[in-house]
Amino acid sequence: MTKSVRHKLSAAERRSLIVHKAIELFAQQGFRATRVKDIAERVGTSDALVFQHFPTKRDLYDAILDELCARRHFTEVEQLLYYAPEYDVEDVLQRLSTWVMEQTEAEPAWLRLTLYAALEQDDGAADLIDEHFQRIIDYVAYEVAEGQHSGKFKAGDARLLARDFFAGLLGLSVMRTVARDPRYRLDPPRAAATVHVATFLRGIRTHEGESGNEV
């Protein structure tokens, strides 16, 4: 008798497969247009089994968030922040921006999900994206506020400035990764990040905070 070599998926493996296939489908056709039936077909299972793992769409969003969560890849920047007390903010922002651009280029689904969430005004999806980005915006706002407190940065709404910083970064990533406009892809992520950060800092630095570095 020949033994079957077909590997039976464990519950955890099947759950992970559902999440990955859902990310693919949501990124290809949006949240609304994707039915549980489509995900089940892509996985090669039944609707009931998908519901067994994810009773609500929100549960699925949460799992996707875990999968795409910034924390998993944020380690290099966090290590610098935690263990280099005299870290240079410009250096950290450059690393953070490079990370965002590299991640979006490595996982284009990340940006496509963001755009679909915005276009479809889906509350659950918007929450997912909010949670994903909020960590980065909160951190930038913290650094802006600290710089304002020490007199290095001009006065202003730190959260608004942090959102501006992030929106610019996201726009750059959209042009590079989704639109694939060659005029935005001339530089590698690190060089593009350096220009973005320098432009932002030039706008908020006081005379006292000027480093003299020109780009």
Binding site: R71, F74, V77, E78, L81, Y82, P85, Q134, R135, D138, Y139, Y142
Partner: peptide
């Protein structure tokens, strides 16, 4: 209500 890395950054500042 603060997400990482902010709690550690504030902790680091406080411990100093």
């Amino acid at each position: 209500g603060l997400n990482c890395p902010l709690p550690i950054l504030r902790l680091s500042k406080a411990i100093n």
